[in-house]
């Protein structure tokens, strides 16, 4: 490992950070109002909660459309291509090794910023949970366009239950996601890259040479 040097590299470009934090805020608004709409708290009256929930949801869908476009046009989507390489080791670390004081088995690369478990989780989130929540949500929201179909009230109930189920699953993700920020580095160190964009990444001399020559803005001197 001696040939590797640790350098500050930009791993989260400005749009990705904007996307992440805006999404976080909107998801919190949605979870908060959604829980209220389901009677778990009464902090916002039903009417305003519906409006807030609807506006936040529409904003989030717009954001997702931009994010999807961004992922494909910048090639960033490759970060989420699943890989079994190292997956088992990471899983083993979280369920066992961590308690023995072992080191995290994954080494972040500037071209592969997520560990295999992370990548798989985010991929599942993007391909299953997010589509589930916004497709069910749009069907729910547009009830009046299909309410004349047979058994519409029953199907509305099905859609509502799927929507709620997906919402709770996303809430569960948020719990695990935030908790894992406390694993390894300090919470603050984990969060910082998503604010500044820069993370400490071990680079080979070739990578350093490439970044300095071709993408000088991404690497700090």
């Amino acid at each position: 490992m001696s040939e590797l040097t640790e350098r500050k590299v930009k791993v989260y470009p400005r749009f990705e950070r904007f996307w992440h934090w805006t999404q976080m805020a909107l998801i919190f608004v949605l979870l908060f109002t959604g829980l209220g709409l389901n009677g778990l708290h009464g902090l916002v009256p039903f009417g305003p909660a519906v409006m807030l929930h609807t506006i936040a949801a529409l904003a989030l869908i717009v954001l997702w459309v931009f994010a999807i476009f961004w992922h494909f046009t910048t090639g960033t989507w490759v970060h989420y291509v699943p890989s079994t390489n190292g997956l088992w080791q990471v899983a083993k670390f979280y369920t066992y090794g961590i308690f023995k004081g072992e080191h995290h088995p994954y080494r972040k690369a500037y071209w592969r910023k997520h560990n295999p478990l992370q990548a798989l989780t985010y991929l599942a989130l993007k391909l299953i949970l997010f589509p589930a929540i916004w497709i069910s949500g749009l069907i729910y929201l547009t009830y009046n366009f299909w309410e004349t179909t047979p058994d519409a009230s029953f199907w509305l109930q099905v859609v509502a239950n799927l929507h709620i189920l997906a919402a709770y699953a996303i809430a569960a993700f948020v719990v695990a996601h935030v908790y894992l920020l406390t694993v390894g580095h300090s919470f603050r160190e984990h969060v910082r890259p998503m604010i500044t964009g820069y993370d400490t990444v071990a680079l080979t001399p070739e990578e350093v040479a490439y970044l300095e020559a071709d993408e000088p803005a991404r690497i700090k001197p």
Binding site: G97, G101, H104, L165, A167, A171, V175, A176, Y179
Partner: peptide, 29 residues
């Protein structure tokens, strides 16, 4: 959904408790 969320919270709390109990902050790179 509530069950899934509860499992996540219990799982995280248990994980954190074991970490505290074993005195390990968790490995670093």
């Amino acid at each position: 959904g509530l069950a899934i969320l509860a499992l996540a919270i219990v799982g995280v709390a248990g994980h954190a408790a074991i970490r505290l109990f074993t005195g390990r902050k968790g490995g670093t790179h």
